[in-house]
Structure formats: structure tokens, C-alpha cells
Amino acid sequence: MDNRQNRLEALLWSGFGLLVLGYALIPVLWILSLSLKWPADLNDRRLIPARISFDNYRAVFEDAQFPAALWNSFGIALLATGLSILLAMFAAYAIVRLRFAGKKLVLAGVLAISMFPPVSIIGPLFNLWRGIGLYDTWAGLIIPYMTFTLPLAIWTLSAFFREIPWDLDKAARVDGATPFQAFFHVIAPLAAPGVFTAAILVFIFAWNDFLFATSLTSTNDARTVPAAIAFFTGSSQFEQPTGSIAAASVVVTVPIIVIVLLFQRRIVAGLTAGAVKG
């Protein structure tokens, strides 16, 4: 009786799981299917293409715009991630370990930034960036990405730092480490799962952003993929660039999937290793 109930429950859970997975993945599959179709078949309403062609992918990469955008995307997202995580690590460590005046204020301020709607600062930022020459540059995008991802990174990392026993910092100090050495040899390695978690979140934000990318860039110098896709044109003025957009979307999704899969294993490994203490 019990056994049957358990089986039913398991079935129900996997059913729901499949439902949610399907709901989330069908659009992705549709884009994938579109990207593989011949231009003439684009409106044939079939999920599985009748004929497969890689022309869309070839077209996307032949256009000078897309490889440049891909390079910009990688560069900007990676730099933003690196800088944001580095700053967040120092900030989170200080918040967790040090007593200083205005600590609560800093945390509240950090939270306030994350609640700030980005769209509200786009206008002023556009003018400011043009004024000081950051418009259409990598730095012009890296700075807002860093700013908007820092709160998340700081909160995530401080949660991880809080889990690390303070005795470890103290032991390292007594063992002859400077505060900096204690941080890099002992605390940072132990917080690695947290660092990866935060890094993934920051990277995804920077990689997927459309708002800043489209407003603060104008040429291939700094335009990232999400923005570049919007500037795709068909091969003639009578043609929709649907196929190329689909192909570019698939290409731009791949790095995210790879990174998440890669780091996810490290996150899980790190978490379980940390759990076995006692």
C-alpha cells in the first residue's frame, strides 16, 4: 500500500517536473528549430524542420557585426563579473568581520541600489557618458553592470563568509599571516562556492542585459549581442531577419549553458565539502 502511494507520488512529481521543463524549454526549442529552417520554410508552423540548413548560422557569422558583438559581450561580461566579484569579496568580508560605524547604512544602501529600477537612470547616464566620453565604450557598460550586480554579489558572498568560522582567520593571523594573506590563503578558498554562485549570477546579468547595451552603445565598438540582434537586417528589405535572429539567439545561449553546467558542479562539490565539518 505504502509502496504504491510512494510510486504514485514520485510519478506525480516527475509529471509536474516535466510540465515545467516543457513550459520553459518549448520557446527555446522553437528558436532552435527556426534557426535551422530554410528561409522559405519559416512560416510552415512545424516544430521539427522539414529540411535542415545551417545557412542562418553562416550568415550570422559572415556579417561583421555579430562576431564583433560576441567579442564585446564576452569581454564586457567577463570584466564586469571579475571586477564586481573582487569588489564584492572585499566589501562582504569587511561587512562580516569588521566592526565599523555605518555598517548598517552600507548594507541598507547596497540593498537600495538593487531596488532601483535601471530604466530610471538610463536618460541621465546617457547624457553623462556622452559628456565624459564613456558613451559607446566597454567601460561605459562595465560600470553600470558592476553597480547593479554588486548588491547581489555582496549579499551572496557575505552569507557565505558568515558561514566560515572566525577562528580560521584568527588562526591564520597567529600562524603569521597578514590580514591580506589570511584572506587569500584561508577565507577566499573556503568561500569559493559562494564566489562561483555570485559570479554566475553577475555574468548572466551582464550577458543578457539589453537595456544598457542598446542605450549606451552605437557602434560595433561596444555593442553586445542582445543589442546587436536588434539591429539585424534581412538579406533584402523585403525579408524579415527571423532566421538570423534565431541563429544568433541560439549562439548567444550556448556560453551561458556551458558556464552554468561547468560551475554548477563546482558549487555542489564545494557545498558538500563544506558541510562535512564537525
Partner: peptide
Amino acid sequence: KNRNMAMVFQSYAIYP
């Protein structure tokens, strides 16, 4: 770090 004293903590504080 400059006192050259060694300490054993109650929690051992071994680097995991």
C-alpha cells in the same frame, strides 16, 4: 604575526 606565539583553538580551527 610578529609575536611568534602559537595558539590551539577550542574549535581547532584547522583549515578544511
